[in-house]
Amino acid sequence: MEKIARSFECKEWDDKGTFSGYASVFGNIDSHGDIVAKGAFDDTLAEAKRTNTLPALLWQHGMEGAMPVGRWTSMHEDDSGLHVEGKIATKTARGADVYELMKMGALNGMSIGYRATSWIMHGKNHPARRTLKAVKLFEVSIVSDPSNGLARVDAVKSHDEGARLKRALAELAAAVRA
């Protein structure tokens, strides 16, 4: 009988409400005719690091009141765009609603609230209106209809995932023992 040994770690999801995704994706044209260029968030990210304060995490750009629905725990640029990780305040009514909709996939858009500080205007023959070279980022929202169609939540963690993983590992262990 052959045996295969693999080490693995099973962590309980004690961080209910965490998620990640792209708040902005570089190089594509959004519904306002803008393209965000790589490096556009450099100043905002440098300021956030200096002040230890990330932009607000809002629901629908605060249209129902600017109270945050959570907080950003990480924000950085990579080759694809502005990657973010956040934690939803699941013990608030709005946070619980947002998180439940995110878990089921009904709410998966992200959108940025910003002021452009440097840009290139394009002429009539260019498909985009302008390319944003630098922006002052004020907030990143969970939204139902993002301006940048590629700006999406890509992972939502929950206690349910930990329970499913534990069940799967127990079934695997039972099958190996059998």
Rank of each mutant, 00 (worst) to 15 (best):
A173R: 11
K136E: 12
R129D: 03
G21K: 06
H126K: 09
D43M: 14
V25Q: 00
G27I: 04
S141K: 07
A151S: 06
H159M: 11
D14R: 15
A106I: 08
K38N: 05
M67P: 04
L137R: 08
V25R: 04
E161S: 08
L82E: 04
A134H: 05
L57E: 01
E64S: 14
A168F: 12
M1K: 12
G39W: 13
V98R: 06
R152S: 04
M110F: 06
N148T: 05
A89L: 10
I4D: 00
E2L: 14
L132C: 08
V69F: 02
D97G: 10
K16A: 03
G39T: 11
N28Y: 02
V25W: 01
A48K: 06
G162Y: 09
A37H: 05
I35S: 00
G21N: 03
S31R: 10
G62W: 04
L58A: 04
V156G: 01
T51L: 09
K136T: 13
I29A: 00
G33H: 02
M75S: 10
G17S: 03
H83R: 15
E100Y: 10
G86W: 09
L101N: 06
S80Q: 12
L172I: 13
T18W: 05
R152P: 03
L165G: 03
W13F: 13
L45R: 10
S7E: 10
A89P: 03
A37R: 07
I4G: 00
H122W: 05
I88Q: 00
G162T: 09
A23H: 06
V69P: 02
P55C: 09
E2F: 14
S118A: 07
N148Y: 08
V69N: 00
T92W: 04
W13D: 07
S20W: 05
K133D: 03
E139Q: 13
E9M: 15
L45C: 09
A116G: 01
F138P: 08
K166R: 14
S158M: 12
S158W: 13
D97N: 11
S7G: 09
Y114P: 04
I112P: 01
